[in-house]
Structures are given as C-alpha cells and as structure tokens.
C-alpha cells in the first residue's frame, strides 16, 4: 500500500516537502517512521537516543493527531483493552500523514 507523507517547517530541510511511501499492508505509524529514518541524520531528527519519538513532534493522520486516533482493540484475560492510536495507529492505502516539528504562535 502507499501513503502520502507531507513534511513541514524545519522537517523540510531533511526530508523535502512530500513523499509517497510504499509500506506492507497492516503497517502503522511506527513502521512508517522507521522507513523515513533511513539515515543517521534523519533518524536523529525523529527519534531520541533511546529510540523514542522526540517530544512535541506532531504527526497527523488524515488531519487527526495520532494520539487521538482509535487503535487496536483486543481482549486480554477477559477484559476489553483498547490501545490508543499514537505510533500504533494503523495506516491504510491512500492515507495522508503530515509531520511537523514543534509549532506554535500566531
């Protein structure tokens, strides 16, 4: 499947303005970021040393902050568990992902 990724503000210096990325079906945002971090410099722009997403980087899937997307629902020991979206948010063919550095003001 293919997703469109748009980069803004200071991210454009390293990633360009827009890319189309081919991913295996069932991929999520984390998988996409792993593909995007294909050089040391690019990886460092996205992740900190421990491999966590850098704070305040904004990722939108189709205009929604990934934190607020519904993620995987599953049953664990008889209880309904719903993982939040975030990096686990699932991607589908044709999705548009927008990535921003920390932004504000105006």
């Amino acid at each position: 499947m293919k997703v469109k990724v748009k980069f803004f503000a200071t991210f454009r210096e390293l990633f360009g303005a827009e890319k189309e990325i081919e991913l295996e079906s069932g991929s999520n945002i984390q998988d996409l970021l792993n593909v995007l971090g294909d050089s040391r410099q690019r990886r460092q722009k996205i992740f900190d040393r421990s491999g966590k997403l850098r704070p305040h980087i904004k990722i939108l899937k189709n205009g929604r902050d990934i934190q607020f997307l519904d993620g995987v629902r599953m049953e664990l020991e008889g209880k309904q568990i719903q993982f939040l979206g975030g990096l686990q948010a699932r991607l589908d063919d044709g999705d548009v992902v927008a990535i921003f550095p920390p932004v504000g003001g105006g």
């Binding site: 803004f8 503000a9 200071t10 927008a98 504000g104 003001g105």
Partner: peptide, 20 residues
C-alpha cells in the same frame, strides 16, 4: 517553539499546521 520554529518561520509557521 520559541528557540527554533518561531525565529525561523515566524508566526506564519501555523498556516500549514492549522490547514492540515
């Protein structure tokens, strides 16, 4: 925000942020 984005791009850094 105050040490990079606003100095580099000014307040209009928000155009794409809000439009997207």
């Amino acid at each position: 925000i105050t040490s990079e984005t606003l100095p580099k791009l000014g307040t209009a850094n928000m155009v794409n942020v809000i439009n997207e």
